[in-house]
Amino acid sequence: MSDYKAVIIGGSAGSFQVVTRIVSSLPANYPLSVILCLHRLKHIRSGFVEALSIKAAMPIVEPIDKEPIKTGKIYLAPANYHLYVELGNKFALSTEDAVNHSRPSIDLSFFSAAYNFKKKLVGIVLSGANKDGALGLKSVKENGGLTIVQDPNECQVPTMTLACMNATNVDHVYSTQRIIDFLLTLD
């Protein structure tokens, strides 16, 4: 039985292929909840889940507001909403102003997940061209969770992972393959 309940992954420019590889590697009965907060075009509401789902064994959904968080599912932050983990193991959505020019903002999702899952959370930040996610990953660390960034040498755009490494003492700097290997040990 894993010590962790949830994995939260943040990514932006250059992260789509990495996320696709990760979600395709997880088995259908993966015992954790996986939350994806990825920067995306705000006016394109459909197609992203479908694209990620092509090779994935786990079901991928965009949670509606107040949806209970279940294990064995991958949740993708919907377009043009912030995604929060709310008390009572539920999701909450918000249309408040963009943070770091982003809605969904990785920082906001990570803050709320860190606060609610504490040490039972794995936070992972992937390739990206801005700093969104750095304070969020710091918050995962401060709440006792495990922090991982994609190796900046492997990132298409390393700005986001480097910002994380500046903001906090990240536990692991992993290649995509090592991230996958690690996530599979939690099975």
Partner: peptide
């Protein structure tokens, strides 16, 4: 009210 939103 939703705590996540109120906090912000």
């Amino acid at each position: 009210y939703t705590l996540s939103i109120l906090k912000r």
